[in-house]
Simulated assay, not measured.
Amino acid sequence: MTHLLPPAERERLLSDYFATEWGLPRTSEHEVFETLSLCGFQAGLSWATILARRPLLRDAFSAFDPDRIAHYGADDAARLLAHPGMIRNRRKISAVVSNARATVRLRAEGTTLADRVWAYSPERTPMPRTWADLPRSTPESAALAAELKRRGFAFVGPTILFAVMATCGVIDAHPIGSPGRGLSGLWNPDGSRRREVPSLGTAQESGR
């Protein structure tokens, strides 16, 4: 879909997103679940492709409501594959459904997906000088990936989880001096923590 956008519009889509949205704290179960789903779809593709298709993916996946997706069956799988704008990767589509069910199970256990992701916030955030300096994963994203796999999540490797943590503001991955650096308000200029993790609410409040 992004190949249908003029280059200038593609660049504006990305620059606006990274300057005003990427890295802002996302603390609700719904926000983190959507981020996990989109980062899974992004693997092997450009983020511009995901941004351009995000409205269509939200439409296809019931606005990324894990309670609704957890009840998807064979008919929904066929519907998703035929949905306009869908990224037709069966493994990625299946992972969204599996992860919705795992998200609901977490809530039943007295925690939430947001709790689990934010529990791995490091004491210091990365300090990249350029986008090329960003690591593909960190010890924290590897540990989070291991926990989520243990809890039944799929398509959750350390690289995807690093992207989730960066997108949700669990770390500040903006290069030093870029417009988005410090957007979350959670980190000091030297990379140390400015304030504690935002309030995530209770497991009951995350349910719908």
Rank of each mutant, 00 (worst) to 15 (best):
1 M>E: 10
2 T>R: 13
2 T>H: 12
3 H>S: 10
3 H>E: 12
3 H>G: 01
4 L>G: 09
5 L>K: 04
6 P>H: 06
6 P>V: 05
7 P>G: 04
8 A>E: 15
8 A>R: 14
10 R>K: 08
12 R>K: 14
15 S>N: 08
16 D>V: 12
17 Y>V: 03
18 F>E: 07
19 A>H: 15
21 E>A: 12
25 P>I: 04
26 R>W: 09
26 R>Q: 15
27 T>I: 13
28 S>Q: 14
29 E>Q: 13
31 E>K: 11
31 E>I: 07
31 E>V: 10
32 V>W: 14
32 V>G: 01
32 V>K: 00
33 F>P: 01
35 T>G: 08
39 C>Q: 12
39 C>D: 05
41 F>A: 01
41 F>R: 00
43 A>S: 14
44 G>Q: 05
44 G>T: 03
44 G>W: 04
46 S>R: 13
47 W>I: 07
48 A>R: 02
49 T>I: 05
49 T>R: 07
50 I>D: 01
51 L>W: 12
52 A>Q: 10
55 P>R: 00
56 L>C: 00
57 L>P: 08
59 D>C: 07
59 D>G: 11
60 A>L: 03
60 A>H: 01
63 A>Q: 15
63 A>N: 15
68 R>S: 03
69 I>G: 04
69 I>M: 11
70 A>W: 08
73 G>R: 05
74 A>W: 13
74 A>R: 11
74 A>M: 12
75 D>E: 12
77 A>F: 12
77 A>P: 01
77 A>M: 09
83 H>E: 12
86 M>W: 09
87 I>S: 04
88 R>I: 09
89 N>C: 03
91 R>W: 11
93 I>Y: 04
94 S>M: 08
95 A>D: 10
96 V>D: 01
99 N>F: 09
99 N>Y: 06
101 R>D: 02
102 A>W: 08
102 A>D: 02
106 L>E: 10
106 L>G: 15
109 E>L: 14
109 E>P: 05
112 T>I: 03
112 T>V: 05
112 T>H: 07
116 R>E: 14
117 V>W: 10
117 V>R: 09
118 W>S: 13
121 S>P: 05
122 P>C: 12
123 E>W: 10
123 E>I: 02
124 R>A: 07
124 R>W: 03
128 P>A: 06
133 D>M: 04
133 D>L: 00
134 L>C: 15
136 R>N: 11
137 S>Q: 12
137 S>V: 03
139 P>R: 07
142 A>G: 04
144 L>Q: 01
147 E>M: 09
151 R>G: 06
152 G>M: 08
153 F>D: 07
155 F>I: 02
156 V>S: 15
157 G>E: 07
158 P>I: 05
161 L>A: 14
161 L>S: 11
163 A>K: 01
166 A>K: 02
168 C>Q: 03
175 P>M: 01
176 I>T: 11
176 I>Y: 06
176 I>D: 08
179 P>H: 06
179 P>G: 11
180 G>F: 09
180 G>V: 10
182 G>L: 06
182 G>V: 12
186 L>Y: 11
186 L>V: 11
187 W>I: 07
189 P>N: 11
189 P>K: 08
191 G>W: 08
193 R>T: 10
193 R>V: 10
193 R>Y: 09
195 R>M: 05
197 V>K: 14
197 V>P: 05
198 P>G: 03
201 G>D: 08
206 S>C: 14
206 S>F: 05
